[in-house]
């Protein structure tokens, strides 16, 4: 049962930084009915020829294996690793969170932000923009705590992920 339970997975890939490459990956997900929870893309080599894409998706282990195999068929994709099953990994995202409030809620928001080590990157008399980096869970709980304290807007990056230890996406 445990083996076939649906779960969340982080898939990281290296892709040639060419026009249409991202559309190919996203089109594959929508065309085959796979889910994308979050997506990050940026060039990661010196010349800017290769981009790394991190996708959080959901499904049973068999679904995830199928997703990975389908991505591997794409010509510009040179590496695909399911970080969730490849061993321990670090996954982080960043959020900018705007809180508009005054009086006691405003003080409370600042106190909680300090506890979370969120930085106030913009401050006005009636608002804060907090910058917070961490795991998805940490960001989720911070945002939940801000909700009654004047939460006005959230912008999240989606996760960047990498495996722990000396192994790399290339050596997996």
């Amino acid at each position: 049962m445990q083996q076939n339970a649906p779960g969340s997975a982080v898939i990281s890939l290296l892709v040639d930084n060419e026009s249409g490459a991202l559309a190919r990956i996203i089109g594959l997900f929508s065309g085959r009915g796979y889910n994308i929870r979050s997506l990050t893309v940026a060039p990661v080599d010196e010349e800017g020829l290769v981009s790394r894409v991190n996708i959080v998706t959901t499904g049973t282990p068999a679904d995830i294996r199928q997703v990975k195999a389908q991505i591997e068929r794409l010509v510009p994709v040179s590496r695909v690793v399911d970080l969730s099953s490849a061993g321990p990994h670090v996954a982080r995202e960043m959020a900018l969170i705007k809180v508009v409030s005054s009086g006691e809620p405003r003080t409370e928001a600042l106190r909680i932000a300090q506890a979370f080590r969120a930085r106030a990157v913009d401050t006005t008399a009636s608002s804060f923009v907090f910058e917070l980096t961490g795991s998805t869970d940490k960001l989720d709980s911070f945002i939940e705590l801000m909700r009654p304290l004047g939460l006005a807007e959230v912008s999240r990056t989606g996760i960047a992920a990498i495996c722990r230890g000396p192994q790399t996406i290339q050596s997996h």
């Binding site: 026009s19 249409g20 559309a23 190919r24 089109g27 594959l28 065309g31 010509v75």
Partner: peptide
């Protein structure tokens, strides 16, 4: 054309 044919080809190019 590359947009329309992306899911119906193994690969496609727009030569710029």
């Amino acid at each position: 054309t590359t947009g329309i044919t992306r899911p119906v080809t193994k690969y496609n190019y727009l030569v710029r």
